[in-house]
Nucleic acid binder design. Structure first.
Lengths: 201, 201, 201, 201
DNA sequence: TAGTAATCGAGACGGTACGTCGGGTCTTCGA
DNA sequence: TCGAAGACCCGACGTACCGTCTCGATTACTA
């Protein structure tokens, strides 16, 4: 499944120095000029690196930025467990929103979301390497809350996740101004209300 | 609104024949090869039109496709009023989802959403000419339901719209498979439940 | 025979300005840095021209320089007719030798002779467009001399041409220092002597 | 003469196995694809050898091929002494012509002649190691004939060599088809006639 | 007969130029 | 006189080799 037709370079010989320089340069250029102006050529020049070195390890500029974003996101957007599911969700959704508006990661992620729409491979990578793990964490947190009785046993957690993330991606996709913190509190409240309210007869 | 710095060609002399050929060619190429492969050059060739003619009337390929999409969307995604707000919302959200998956309009709209992320003017145009009017209609329909007592007087309609559209844009933005019809019924049900449930003490 | 698989650009629309700039830039760069350092990229930059414009009209850098050389050679290396075939040949051979050592045409022609050795198309072009016409002229001049009785009726003119040009190309091919004028006089004398001497029994 | 700025690797440790593999690979590739397609990278791959190993022992691909050619030429193009200078010259010139058209040595020597035109060091090496010794042999053979009275005492032997080799290099340099054996006989005859004919008053 | 120092294969690295594609501008020519 | 055709400058693409370099793994001299 992973047998690409390329000669598959030896990762042990990889220069960590170059790798970091490339990721940094890509993020910087994206923040400075916007994703559209990021070019492999420009990244190579800024990083003091040969184009070939980039192409050796990444298929597209989207993949480069995805790796940069993933590294930057690992520590950001935490998923706390204070015991209060509503508060924790507010914290998490807020941190995700902050990601979109972050001066350095934000433009990069926006660019990735743009490119992913017409590049199947990048879409797959984003889902597998970035989104799926984080969604799984949220799902687990909600599940824990359900087992603790903070949510009804039949709560539709998948739908919950989509209702929490959805409005953020909706505003982002259409470049509408993001929610303020109060609005996020209300959003989370509505979602939790939907989970807890009994289905109509 | 028409304050373009360009010489502003005389619209009366515009060839309607060329205009339609360009819009059709753009939609076709987008459907066939995906938005990323659409080029002004390719559209011009397919439409049997000079590149200059395209640049004379549209600033970017996104603008071309936007015009094509708007023409195609006018009649689609209707907003019925059967008196039952839940059912009407299911109908509408389903029709919006159908738009994303439509074989000819879908790829074009996807492309627009991609380009809009790094082009302010297109983002503005999409919101003003396409999204805002339709959101206003939904808002009106919900407001009518509220006045009829199908929703509580303090229902947060703006949030409702976002919770309805959000999951669709979330899945679209990440190229996840769309909801089936049953899932949309459940989504609408959750949103309505959230609107009707009393806020927690 | 001339139907290249390329779209065949329209020569009437060609920019003479660009053409001259390209030929000049190519000759200059060749004289300055040597043929090996001439690159299409460099020529384009020096000529203030797009690479595409070069590739549109010439297949290789060799072809560009060939055209430049041909233009430069037309007026140089004259073929006089003073009535004295020996003197005229000395004049001509000397002018050819001067071509090899000319500061601007020389390096270009040397480069062409280098590239032609591993490029069939260039070899053909050089023979057809540059060498053959000039050899024909020399042949005619010798033929005229033969008809005037300055050479025997059975003189082998083809061999004569080769014996005149040969030593020049021999020295050039091996980068040996060229003949001085006195040596050329002797060379021509030997060739003429060979033509006039009776074959051995 | 050995004053290279390089660390000067120890020749005693040199792998003869690699050396032969490199020379063979270079000759093969040159014969198969032409000199222009020969690359250090390709030679290394074909020889199963590291690029570094090639660069350690040769400065350029021209140098590699020169070494290969010299090894192959040592026994070829003999210089017989049957007592008949005309016949011996025909034999020798024919053998030189055969060299140019030899399927394996020919392309390599052609490549060397190409590269030597823009590489001073290679030109010097070719003259010193390959051409000069052979020219000296021819000169000696002619000189012997002169002393034996087969040529006049004042025969210009240097010019003779150039008139014999010249037409071959002329045709080779311009990739014109080579002389057939009869033509070589005539060429040698002309040269000898020139040497023997008295200078004009 | 070990130790050790160089060469070996492999191939990643920073570069330069390649030949191609498409962008957006500008000129020419035919209907 | 307008619009198609398309040549133009430009910038980036992804690839091929260049010549240098660092790796372990032999391999062949030295101690």
């Amino acid at each position: 499944m992973t047998d690409s037709p390329r000669p598959a370079p030896n990762p042990r010989r990889r220069s960590e120095r170059s790798r970091r320089a490339i990721l940094s340069a890509a993020l910087e250029l994206c923040a400075e000029n916007g994703y559209g102006k990021v070019t492999i050529e420009g990244v190579a020049a800024r990083a003091g690196v040969s184009k070939k070195t980039i192409y050796r390890w990444w298929p597209t500029k989207g993949a480069v930025l995805l790796e940069a974003v993933i590294e930057g996101v690992v520590s950001a957007s935490p998923l706390p467990d204070t015991g209060n599911i509503d508060a924790d969700m507010v914290t998490h959704v807020t941190s995700v929103m902050r990601l979109f508006t972050s001066p350095v990661i934000g433009p990069a992620y926006t660019g990735i979301l743009s490119e992913l729409l017409h590049e199947e491979a990048l879409a797959r990578a984003v889902n597998e390497e970035l989104v799926a793990p984080r969604v799984a964490l949220v799902h687990q947190r909600l599940d824990a809350a359900r087992r603790q009785g903070q949510l009804p046993p039949d709560a539709d957690l998948e739908l919950a996740v989509e209702m929490l993330y959805g409005p953020l991606y909706y505003r982002h996709a259409l470049k509408r101004p993001f929610h303020d913190e109060q609005r996020i509190v209300e959003l989370v409240a509505h979602v939790m209300r939907a989970l807890r309210a009994p289905a109509r007869s």
